[in-house]
C-alpha cells in the first residue's frame, strides 16, 4: 500500500526541501519506489536540490490541469532507478493547486509508487494545507530554536484537525519529529535546546537528529541529496532516520560533542 508522507514545518528555512530530497533518496536506496513532489508552487526549488533543474519540461500544475500526463512530467533520477522527482510550477497563481486535482494525481501515483514524499511550502496557507491534507505520515522538520518549535506545534495542531484523516475520523496521521541543524557542542553548553527539551515540549516521537554540517550546503551546491554523501555526519544521520522510519531500531548518533584531537582543534572542523 502506497504511503503519502508530508515533510512540513510551518517555519521556512529549517530544511524541509533538504529533508524531502534526503528522505526520498534514502527510501529509494533502500529499494522502495519513491517519488518526491514539490508543493511550493511559484518557488520551485526541489529540482535544484535534486540536481535535475535542467530536465524540467512539464510540472505538477500541468498534470493537474491535464496539459501533460504523469510520464511526461516525472523526472527519473540519474543516480537511482527507484527515485523520481515531480517538480512544481513557477506560476504566480497560488490557487493553481486544486485539492481535487491533487487527489487525482496522488491516486494515480499510488498505483506505481511505494512512497510519495510531499515537500510542503513554509507557512500555513493554501499550499501548505494542500501538501499535508492527504498525508498518512508527517515528518515535522524542526530546528532547536524557539520560533521553529512554536511553528511546529502549530502545524502539528493543523495536522490533527484539518488533514483528511482528521476530517474523516480515520486513524490519525503518523507524526514524526526530525530535529535538524543540531549543534551538540552548543547543547552541552546550555546554549541550544536539547533533544529531550524539544521532545518534551512537542510530545511527538523523534525520528532523527541531523547535526549542523557543512555537507548540507555542499550537497545543495552540487544538487546531490545529502544521503549520497555516505561520509558526512548529516548524510549518515539521514540514513539512520530513514531506517527508523522503516521500523528499524537505531541509536542516535552525533548527539554528543565529538572529542577533537589537537590537529582538529587547530585546523577547524572537518
Amino acid at each position: 500500500m502506497a504511503k503519502v508522507v508530508v515533510v512540513t514545518s510551518g517555519k521556512g528555512g529549517v530544511g524541509k526541501t533538504t529533508t524531502s530530497a534526503a528522505f526520498a533518496a534514502g527510501l529509494a536506496l533502500r529499494g522502495h519506489k519513491t517519488v518526491v513532489i514539490d508543493f511550493d508552487v511559484g518557488l520551485r526549488n526541489l529540482d535544484l536540490i535534486m540536481g535535475c533543474e535542467r530536465r524540467v519540461v512539464f510540472d505538477f500544475i500541468n498534470v493537474i490541469n491535464g496539459d501533460a500526463n504523469l510520464n511526461q512530467a516525472l523526472i527519473k533520477d540519474k543516480r537511482n532507478d527507484n527515485l523520481f522527482i515531480f517538480p512544481t510550477s513557477q506560476t504566480r497563481d497560488k490557487d493553481a493547486l486544486k485539492r481535487d486535482g491533487v487527489e487525482r494525481v496522488l491516486e494515480e501515483l499510488k498505483k506505481t509508487f511505494d512512497y510519495i514524499i510531499c515537500d510542503s511550502p513554509a507557512g500555513i496557507e493554501h499550499g501548505a494545507i494542500t501538501a499535508l491534507y492527504f498525508a498518512d505520515s508527517a515528518i515535522i522538520v524542526t530546528n532547536p530554536e524557539v520560533s521553529s518549535v512554536r511553528d511546529s506545534d502549530r502545524i502539528i495542531g493543523i495536522l490533527s484537525s484539518r488533514s483528511r484523516r482528521a476530517e474523516r475520523n480515520e486513524p490519525p496521521v503518523d507524526i514524526h519529529l526530525l530535529l535538524t541543524r543540531y549543534d551538540a557542542d552548543r547543547v552541552a553548553k546550555g546554549e541550544m535546546l536539547a533533544i529531550d527539551d524539544v521532545k518534551e515540549i512537542l510530545s511527538i516521537p523523534i525520528l532523527g537528529v541531523i547535526p549542523e554540517s557543512e555537507s548540507v550546503l555542499r550537497a545543495s551546491n552540487t544538487g546531490t541529496p545529502v544521503v549520497f554523501d555516505t561520509e558526512s555526519p548529516a548524510g549518515r544521520a539521514y540514513t539512520d532516520a530513514v531506517a527508523r522510519f522503516l521500523g528499524e531500531q537505531r541509536e542516535m548518533r552525533f548527539v554528543t560533542p565529538e572529542r577533537r584531537g589537537f590537529f582538529r582543534l587547530l585546523f577547524g572542523r572537518a
Binding site: V146, R150, E191
Partner: peptide
Amino acid sequence: PKSASIAKERLKIVLAHERAGR
C-alpha cells in the same frame, strides 16, 4: 542562567496558552 532553559520555559508557557485557544 543558560539561555536554552530560558527558551524551554518560554516555549512551555506560550504553547500552553496557544493550545488552549486553538
